[in-house]
Protein backbone atom coordinates (compact mmCIF):
# COMPACT_ATOMS: atom_id res chain seq x y z
CA UNK A 1 0.00 0.00 0.00
CA UNK A 2 1.37 3.39 -0.91
CA UNK A 3 2.18 6.03 1.61
CA UNK A 4 2.68 9.05 -0.63
CA UNK A 5 -0.17 10.77 1.10
CA UNK A 6 1.18 10.72 4.64
CA UNK A 7 4.69 11.67 3.50
CA UNK A 8 3.37 14.75 1.80
CA UNK A 9 0.92 15.84 4.47
CA UNK A 10 2.18 18.75 6.56
CA UNK A 11 0.53 19.06 9.89
CA UNK A 12 0.37 22.05 12.15
CA UNK A 13 2.25 22.35 15.45
CA UNK A 14 0.21 20.65 18.16
CA UNK A 15 -1.31 18.20 15.68
CA UNK A 16 -2.30 14.87 17.20
CA UNK A 17 -3.29 11.68 15.45
CA UNK A 18 -7.04 11.29 14.92
CA UNK A 19 -6.90 7.74 16.32
CA UNK A 20 -5.49 9.07 19.62
CA UNK A 21 -8.06 11.86 19.88
CA UNK A 22 -10.93 9.55 18.90
CA UNK A 23 -9.95 7.18 21.70
CA UNK A 24 -10.18 9.98 24.26
CA UNK A 25 -13.32 11.73 23.05
CA UNK A 26 -16.83 10.85 21.83
CA UNK A 27 -15.68 11.49 18.23
CA UNK A 28 -14.97 8.80 15.67
CA UNK A 29 -11.74 8.91 13.68
CA UNK A 30 -13.52 10.34 10.65
CA UNK A 31 -15.20 13.00 12.78
CA UNK A 32 -11.79 14.02 14.16
CA UNK A 33 -10.51 14.21 10.59
CA UNK A 34 -13.43 16.46 9.68
CA UNK A 35 -12.69 18.62 12.74
CA UNK A 36 -9.15 18.99 11.43
CA UNK A 37 -10.57 20.54 8.28
CA UNK A 38 -12.59 22.98 10.39
CA UNK A 39 -9.56 23.62 12.61
CA UNK A 40 -7.34 24.42 9.61
CA UNK A 41 -9.92 26.91 8.37
CA UNK A 42 -10.29 28.65 11.75
CA UNK A 43 -6.58 28.64 12.55
CA UNK A 44 -5.56 30.26 9.29
CA UNK A 45 -8.20 32.96 9.12
CA UNK A 46 -5.88 35.73 10.34
CA UNK A 47 -2.47 34.25 11.17
CA UNK A 48 -1.66 31.15 9.14
CA UNK A 49 0.26 29.27 11.82
CA UNK A 50 -2.07 26.36 12.53
CA UNK A 51 -3.08 27.66 15.95
CA UNK A 52 -6.32 29.38 16.86
CA UNK A 53 -5.60 32.81 18.28
CA UNK A 54 -8.14 34.78 20.32
CA UNK A 55 -8.86 37.13 17.39
CA UNK A 56 -9.53 34.16 15.10
CA UNK A 57 -11.89 32.71 17.65
CA UNK A 58 -13.73 36.04 17.93
CA UNK A 59 -13.86 36.32 14.16
CA UNK A 60 -15.45 32.87 13.87
CA UNK A 61 -17.97 33.54 16.62
CA UNK A 62 -18.94 37.10 15.86
CA UNK A 63 -17.67 37.73 12.30
CA UNK A 64 -15.66 40.48 13.97
CA UNK A 65 -12.10 39.95 15.14
CA UNK A 66 -12.23 42.81 17.63
CA UNK A 67 -15.45 41.99 19.41
CA UNK A 68 -14.63 41.27 23.03
CA UNK A 69 -17.08 39.25 25.05
CA UNK A 70 -16.74 37.88 28.57
CA UNK A 71 -18.25 34.51 27.70
CA UNK A 72 -16.23 34.01 24.52
CA UNK A 73 -13.12 34.85 26.57
CA UNK A 74 -14.08 32.20 29.13
CA UNK A 75 -14.68 29.57 26.44
CA UNK A 76 -11.34 30.42 24.81
CA UNK A 77 -9.54 30.14 28.15
CA UNK A 78 -11.09 26.74 28.85
CA UNK A 79 -10.22 25.45 25.39
CA UNK A 80 -6.66 26.73 25.87
CA UNK A 81 -5.81 23.85 28.21
CA UNK A 82 -2.05 24.57 28.22
CA UNK A 83 -2.80 28.22 28.94
CA UNK A 84 -0.34 29.49 26.35
CA UNK A 85 -2.73 31.92 24.66
CA UNK A 86 -3.61 29.76 21.64
CA UNK A 87 -5.79 26.74 20.94
CA UNK A 88 -3.97 23.75 19.45
CA UNK A 89 -5.69 21.02 17.48
CA UNK A 90 -5.71 18.49 20.34
CA UNK A 91 -7.13 21.09 22.72
CA UNK A 92 -9.78 22.00 20.16
CA UNK A 93 -10.95 18.41 19.74
CA UNK A 94 -10.83 17.50 23.44
CA UNK A 95 -12.77 20.62 24.41
CA UNK A 96 -15.33 20.29 21.64
CA UNK A 97 -15.79 16.69 22.74
CA UNK A 98 -17.67 18.01 25.78
CA UNK A 99 -20.18 19.58 23.36
CA UNK A 100 -20.79 16.32 21.49
CA UNK A 101 -24.38 15.07 21.85
CA UNK A 102 -23.02 11.77 23.19
CA UNK A 103 -20.64 13.29 25.75
CA UNK A 104 -21.46 12.44 29.38
CA UNK A 105 -23.82 14.93 30.98
CA UNK A 106 -21.50 15.15 33.99
CA UNK A 107 -18.77 16.54 31.70
CA UNK A 108 -21.14 19.20 30.38
CA UNK A 109 -22.21 20.19 33.90
CA UNK A 110 -18.57 20.36 35.00
CA UNK A 111 -17.55 22.43 31.98
CA UNK A 112 -20.35 24.93 32.57
CA UNK A 113 -19.32 25.22 36.22
CA UNK A 114 -15.72 26.02 35.28
CA UNK A 115 -17.00 28.48 32.69
CA UNK A 116 -18.97 30.42 35.29
CA UNK A 117 -16.30 30.16 38.02
CA UNK A 118 -14.73 33.33 36.66
CA UNK A 119 -11.99 33.66 39.26
CA UNK A 120 -11.13 29.95 39.48
CA UNK A 121 -11.97 29.71 43.16
CA UNK A 122 -13.84 26.42 42.85
CA UNK A 123 -17.12 28.24 43.51
CA UNK A 124 -19.52 30.43 41.60
CA UNK A 125 -19.81 33.50 43.76
CA UNK A 126 -22.59 36.06 43.87
CA UNK A 127 -20.40 38.81 42.46
CA UNK A 128 -19.42 36.58 39.55
CA UNK A 129 -23.05 35.82 38.77
CA UNK A 130 -23.87 39.54 38.84
CA UNK A 131 -20.88 40.31 36.62
CA UNK A 132 -22.10 37.74 34.08
CA UNK A 133 -25.67 39.05 34.12
CA UNK A 134 -24.37 42.59 33.53
CA UNK A 135 -22.14 41.34 30.69
CA UNK A 136 -25.10 39.60 29.07
CA UNK A 137 -27.26 42.72 29.34
CA UNK A 138 -24.52 44.82 27.80
CA UNK A 139 -24.00 42.31 24.99
CA UNK A 140 -27.73 42.27 24.25
CA UNK A 141 -28.20 46.04 24.56
CA UNK A 142 -30.74 45.38 27.29
CA UNK A 143 -31.15 47.95 30.00
CA UNK A 144 -32.41 46.89 33.41
CA UNK A 145 -32.19 48.92 36.59
CA UNK A 146 -29.62 47.83 39.13
CA UNK A 147 -32.47 46.93 41.52
CA UNK A 148 -33.92 44.48 39.01
CA UNK A 149 -30.51 42.94 38.34
CA UNK A 150 -30.07 42.48 42.09
CA UNK A 151 -33.46 40.77 42.34
CA UNK A 152 -32.65 38.38 39.47
CA UNK A 153 -29.26 37.52 40.94
CA UNK A 154 -30.62 37.14 44.50
CA UNK A 155 -33.49 34.94 43.43
CA UNK A 156 -31.27 32.60 41.41
CA UNK A 157 -28.57 32.57 44.04
CA UNK A 158 -31.00 31.71 46.80
CA UNK A 159 -32.34 28.79 44.79
CA UNK A 160 -28.93 27.42 43.87
CA UNK A 161 -26.99 28.10 47.07
CA UNK A 162 -28.86 25.51 49.13
CA UNK A 163 -26.18 25.45 51.84
CA UNK A 164 -26.60 29.20 52.24
CA UNK A 165 -22.89 29.97 52.52
CA UNK A 166 -22.95 32.68 49.86
CA UNK A 167 -21.36 30.65 47.08
CA UNK A 168 -22.35 27.83 44.75
CA UNK A 169 -20.18 24.74 44.94
CA UNK A 170 -20.01 21.92 42.39
CA UNK A 171 -22.49 19.77 44.29
CA UNK A 172 -25.05 22.58 44.48
CA UNK A 173 -24.48 23.36 40.81
CA UNK A 174 -25.12 19.73 39.84
CA UNK A 175 -28.33 19.73 41.85
CA UNK A 176 -29.43 23.06 40.39
CA UNK A 177 -28.84 21.86 36.82
CA UNK A 178 -30.79 18.67 37.50
CA UNK A 179 -33.76 20.90 38.44
CA UNK A 180 -33.13 23.22 35.46
CA UNK A 181 -31.76 21.03 32.63
CA UNK A 182 -32.11 23.82 30.08
CA UNK A 183 -29.10 25.49 31.72
CA UNK A 184 -26.74 23.13 29.92
CA UNK A 185 -28.58 23.15 26.60
CA UNK A 186 -25.81 25.27 25.09
CA UNK A 187 -23.27 22.62 26.11
CA UNK A 188 -24.52 20.41 23.26
CA UNK A 189 -23.83 21.16 19.61
CA UNK A 190 -25.98 19.01 17.30
CA UNK A 191 -23.65 20.09 14.43
CA UNK A 192 -20.99 17.79 15.80
CA UNK A 193 -23.03 14.77 14.73
CA UNK A 194 -22.95 15.93 11.12
CA UNK A 195 -19.44 17.27 11.11
CA UNK A 196 -18.23 14.76 8.51
CA UNK A 197 -20.86 16.04 6.07
CA UNK A 198 -19.99 19.66 6.73
CA UNK A 199 -16.21 19.19 6.52
CA UNK A 200 -15.31 16.11 4.47
CA UNK A 201 -11.61 15.25 4.60
CA UNK A 202 -10.69 12.78 1.91
CA UNK A 203 -6.94 13.28 1.97
CA UNK A 204 -6.55 12.73 5.68
CA UNK A 205 -8.89 9.71 5.52
CA UNK A 206 -6.58 8.14 2.97
CA UNK A 207 -3.68 8.73 5.28
CA UNK A 208 -5.34 6.97 8.19
CA UNK A 209 -6.10 4.00 5.95
CA UNK A 210 -2.43 3.87 5.10
CA UNK A 211 -1.47 3.78 8.75
CA UNK A 212 -3.89 0.98 9.36
Amino acid sequence: MGCFCSKNTRHTPGYEEPTVLAAETPFTVSEVEALYELFKKLSSSIIDDGLIHKEEFQLALFKNRNKRNLFADRIFDLFDIKRNGVIEFGEFVRSLGVFHPNAPEADKIGFAFRLYDLRHTGYIEREELKEMVLALLQESDLILSDDIVEVIVDKTFNEADTKGDGRIDQEEWKEFVSKNPSLIKNMTLPYLKDITLAFPSFVVSAEVEDLE
Binding site: L42, L61, F71, V151, I152, F176
Partner: peptide, 26 residues
Protein backbone atom coordinates in the same frame (compact mmCIF):
# COMPACT_ATOMS: atom_id res chain seq x y z
CA UNK B 1 -41.99 41.66 35.27
CA UNK B 2 -40.67 38.83 33.08
CA UNK B 3 -36.94 39.41 33.65
CA UNK B 4 -37.37 39.32 37.43
CA UNK B 5 -38.72 35.79 37.33
CA UNK B 6 -35.94 34.77 34.98
CA UNK B 7 -33.21 32.44 36.15
CA UNK B 8 -29.92 34.36 35.94
CA UNK B 9 -28.04 31.36 34.54
CA UNK B 10 -30.74 30.90 31.93
CA UNK B 11 -30.24 34.51 30.91
CA UNK B 12 -26.46 34.08 30.71
CA UNK B 13 -26.73 30.92 28.65
CA UNK B 14 -28.27 32.93 25.81
CA UNK B 15 -24.99 34.78 25.26
CA UNK B 16 -23.74 34.83 21.70
CA UNK B 17 -20.30 34.16 23.12
CA UNK B 18 -21.49 30.76 24.32
CA UNK B 19 -23.11 29.83 21.04
CA UNK B 20 -20.39 27.80 19.41
CA UNK B 21 -22.57 26.81 16.47
CA UNK B 22 -21.17 29.91 14.70
CA UNK B 23 -17.84 28.07 14.45
CA UNK B 24 -19.41 25.67 11.96
CA UNK B 25 -20.80 28.30 9.63
CA UNK B 26 -19.07 28.26 6.29
Amino acid sequence: AAPVTMNAFELISTSQGLNLSSLFEK
